[in-house]
Design a protein around this nucleic acid. Structure first.
Lengths: 200, 200
DNA sequence: GGACGAAGTGGAACGTGTTCCTATTATGAC
DNA sequence: GTCATAATAGGAACACGTTCCACTTCGTCC
């Protein structure tokens, strides 16, 4: 493990530390929601979370770590939400599209937040590998669950398809947050991709 | 058109201006090749190109514009190279994989340059839409040419498939330049995606 | 309670992208 | 040639991510 990792919840012994971490992430969300990537300024986060700048950097070694950690925690919620109730739709593609649209709509409801998180994700380098990997696993798990609800065994093709869909989704998201495509185009493009990959 | 666009070759009347623009792009390439995104520092580019910092910003309104313009000009070369000679391979997938591998290998031969250009591309916002669009068109054109050599009419599906492959390629590239996957994994993932999309 | 190390505070300082200003040099109209 | 205008040079100044340091507080062991 690299030494440049964020402090995860597990690492934090004391309640005060868990609370600091939460305050930092809350401040990050709030600033991101208001003004996107640029508004998440480390001094502002530290101020709002009422911690010193040095403490902020002790919990999250860079702005990118901070935002990708926030993204991962966002995805954990999304994944947990799908894990409980069955996903509607008669075919794989219907279910996958349902998951994608639902998740995308959630993100598009908070454009600034999404812009901040997506930007950070795309800019992350190897030192953020852990956080990135969590996000990838969660996305993959959501998609394969939608493809084969309740399945325990997955073929190599299933995994590959999930990954391709994840790639398309990410590209579409980037195009959207950077203002290069509209929400409708994003949705249409994802549906197209799913249709091409899952012909059922 | 936004006012925040790079000066294109067409905009530049005098030979001295074309020469300045070329010196700037050459300096950018050299710095990027040596040290990647971080090494492309605006002061360093200006020094190496022997222009003032203000002049550099007059030609390229931001570091991102500068790097994405460099990427676009790189793609123009790649696309031109494929336009002349026929692409080997008996099936669509073989030809598409050939194009992808060839282009990817070219990029992987210059990891720092690729890192710089890819990072810039992923970080670009709407103000770089023109440059981004050029890159997208060139990539799309390369892929559809590989799918249907010499074709003049393309179905909606052809275009959609090319776009999905482009998305996968970009994601794979990002994963590679950020050290999250190896060159071999990148290649395998792209082959997988092509196989899933072009079953011929 | 006291000692000690880890964690936190507050803020200065540095690097790099970006902006801005003034002086100087090219360019083009006449 | 002369003048007006635009383009460039040179560099100071600013913003924000990041690092660092001196000091204080907290938790733990004796």
């Amino acid at each position: 493990m690299s030494s440049a990792n964020s402090l995860t919840v597990d690492d934090l012994g004391s309640a005060a530390q868990r609370d600091r971490r939460k305050r930092i992430l809350d401040a990050t969300y709030e600033l991101a929601r208001e003004g996107g990537f640029d508004a998440v300024q480390m001094r502002a986060v530290a101020d709002k979370a009422e911690v010193a700048l040095g403490t902020l950097y002790r919990y999250f070694p860079s702005k990118i770590h901070l935002l990708v950690s926030a993204l991962a925690s966002e995805f954990e919620h999304a994944e947990a939400a799908f894990r409980d109730k069955p996903i509607p739709g008669d075919t794989s593609s219907e279910r996958v599209i349902f998951v994608l649209k639902k998740t995308t709509r959630g993100l598009q409801g908070d454009p600034h937040l999404t812009e901040a998180l997506t930007r950070a994700f795309m800019f992350a380098d190897a030192s953020v590998a852990n956080e990135i990997h969590s996000v990838g696993m969660l996305l993959s798990s959501m998609l394969t669950q939608a493809m084969h609800p309740g399945a325990t065994e997955l073929t190599a093709d299933d995994v590959a398809i999930a990954r391709v869909i994840g790639d398309v989704w990410l590209s579409a998201l980037v195009a959207w947050v950077t203002g290069r495509s509209t929400a409708a185009e994003t949705g249409a493009h994802m549906e197209n991709a799913v249709r091409l990959l899952l012909r059922d």
